[in-house]
C-alpha cells in the first residue's frame, strides 16, 4: 500500500425519485478515500446504501450531491477504468470462457496477440485454464464468478468493484473465492472495493472496512484491521486465529446489532 488514494468519495448523497413527488434518501453525505492497491470493504446492514455507493463509483448511478473522483477525474458514467463484478452471474452464455475473458479487450480494440496473452494469463490466475473452451452453462457458480473476475481484470481497470460477489455461493466455495481474491490482489496490485454484509468476509479481505449505517446510508466508522499488521494473509484459518480477530468481529457485530435495534 502506498497510502496514495485512487478513489475519493466526496460528500456523496443519493436520493432516489420514486415518482409522484415521493423520494427516498439512500445515501447521505458520505466521504472516504480508497488507497491505491488496497482492498476496501463496504460493510453494513441491508438498506445502508452500500451497493448504491458502489454503483455510483461504477458510474451506473449518479450522485445527487457530491462527487466521486478517480485518478483526479470526476466519475461521469461507466468506464473501463472501473471494472465491476456483480452478485448475479453475468457470464455471456453464448461465449466460451476464453471469449468471455477476451470480451472487454476486444471491444476496446486491443491487438489480437496481446489479447491472447492476457486472456490466457487471467484465466490461469483464476484457475480456469482447463475450462477455457467450456461454455458458462457447463460451469459451477463459483467458476462463473471466476470468469467474471478474470474478464474484469483482463480489461485492466484501475479499480475492481465487487457487489456481494460471493453472496450466491455456498460456504466452502465462498471461502475459496475469498482466498483467491487475496492472491489476485497480491499478484495484480489492483485496487478493490468490495461490498458485503458478511463480517468474516469483511475482516478477512479488508485493508480497510468502511461501515455504513442504514436509512439513510451514512458513514458510521472507518476501521483498519490493525491485528493484521498491514499484511495480507491468504489463509483464512490463520487469520481467524490471530489475536485481535475476535475483538474486531465482536465490534462489528455490535455495530450491526445497533443498526438492527434502531431499525425495529
Amino acid at each position: 500500500m502506498t497510502g496514495q488514494s485512487t478513489l475519493q468519495i466526496r460528500n456523496v448523497s443519493k436520493r432516489f425519485d420514486l415518482g409522484r413527488g415521493r423520494s427516498v434518501q439512500a445515501v447521505q453525505d458520505i466521504s472516504f478515500d480508497v488507497e491505491q492497491n488496497s482492498i476496501c470493504v463496504l460493510l453494513g446492514p441491508s438498506g445502508c446504501g452500500k451497493s448504491t455507493v458502489l454503483r455510483m463509483m461504477a458510474g451506473l448511478e449518479t450522485p445527487t450531491e457530491g462527487e466521486i473522483v478517480i485518478g483526479g477525474r470526476t466519475v461521469d458514467g461507466p468506464g473501463r477504468d472501473r471494472g465491476m463484478v456483480f452478485q448475479a452471474y453475468t457470464s455471456f452464455d453464448w461465449l466460451s470462457v476464453r471469449k468471455n475473458v477476451e470480451f472487454g479487450m476486444k471491444i476496446n480494440g486491443l491487438p489480437a496477440s496481446e489479447r491472447k496473452d492476457r486472456t490466457a494469463h487471467f484465466i490461469d490466475l483464476v484457475g480456469l485454464t482447463k475450462f477455457a473452451d467450456a461454455y458458462p452453462s457447463q460451469l459451477s457458480g463459483g467458476m462463473r464468478q471466476r470468469v467474471a473476475i478474470a474478464r474484469t481484470l483482463a480489461n485492466g481497470p484501475e479499480v475492481l468493484l465487487m457487489d456481494e460477489p460471493f453472496g450466491a455461493l455456498d460456504a466452502e466455495t465462498r471461502w475459496l473465492m475469498q482466498e483467491l481474491m487475496i492472491n489476485v490482489a497480491e499478484q495484480t496490485s489492483t485496487t478493490m472495493v468490495i461490498v458485503t454484509h458478511d463480517l468474516e468476509e469483511a475482516i478477512f479481505l479488508a485493508d480497510k472496512i468502511v461501515f455504513l449505517s442504514s436509512h439513510p446510508g451514512r458513514l458510521k466508522e472507518e476501521i483498519v484491521p490493525q491485528f493484521k499488521n498491514g499484511k495480507r494473509i491468504a489463509d483464512k484459518e490463520k487469520v481467524v486465529k490471530l489475536d485481535g480477530y475476535s475483538d474486531l468481529e465482536a465490534h462489528l457485530m455490535r455495530l450491526m446489532r445497533q443498526e438492527g435495534r434502531e431499525n425495529e
Binding site: L60, P78, A148
Partner: peptide, 14 residues
C-alpha cells in the same frame, strides 16, 4: 435481457 449483462458491458467500456 438481464440488466446486469448490460451493466457489465458498460463497465467494460462498451
Amino acid at each position: 435481457v438481464r440488466e446486469e449483462l448490460v451493466e457489465t458491458a458498460l463497465t467494460l467500456g462498451a
